[in-house]
Amino acid sequence: YFCHCCSVEIVPRLPDYICPRCESGFIEEL
Rank of each mutant, 00 (worst) to 15 (best):
F26Q: 15
I10A: 05
V8K: 09
L14P: 07
H4D: 07
E9M: 05
L14Y: 12
F26P: 15
F26S: 15
G25C: 08
C5A: 12
P20R: 03
F26N: 15
C19D: 00
H4G: 07
I27W: 01
Y17G: 14
Y1S: 05
S24D: 12
S24I: 05
C3E: 01
P12N: 04
V8F: 08
L14D: 10
V8S: 09
E29L: 10
E29C: 15
C3P: 01
Y17W: 13
C22E: 00
F26W: 15
P20M: 02
F2D: 02
S7I: 05
D16M: 14
C3Y: 01
G25D: 15
Y1V: 09
P12T: 03
P15D: 11
H4E: 04
I27C: 09
S24V: 12
V8Y: 05
I10V: 05
V8H: 13
E23A: 06
P12D: 09
Y1E: 04
I18D: 12
V11P: 06
V8Q: 12
D16V: 03
S7L: 11
I10P: 09
F2S: 04
D16W: 05
R13D: 11
Y17I: 11
F2N: 13
E9H: 13
C6L: 01
E29T: 12
H4M: 08
E23D: 01
E29R: 09
V8W: 11
G25A: 14
R21A: 08
P12Q: 03
R21T: 03
S24C: 07
C22L: 00
P20V: 02
H4I: 11
C6G: 05
C22G: 01
E28Y: 09
P12K: 06
L14W: 11
F2R: 08
P15E: 08
V11F: 11
S7G: 08
E29V: 11
G25Q: 05
S7R: 06
L14N: 09
L14M: 14
L30R: 15
H4L: 08
S7M: 09
L14Q: 14
I27Q: 09
P20I: 01
E9L: 03
F2T: 12
F2P: 01
P20K: 02
C6P: 02
E9V: 06
P15W: 02
I27R: 06
V8E: 13
E29M: 04
R13A: 09
C6V: 01
R13V: 05
E9I: 04
E23K: 14
L30A: 12
E23R: 10
I18Q: 11
R21K: 15
P12A: 10
D16Q: 14
I10G: 06
E28F: 03
Y17L: 13
C22P: 00
I18S: 12
Y17S: 08
G25R: 07
S7N: 13
C6E: 03
V8A: 12
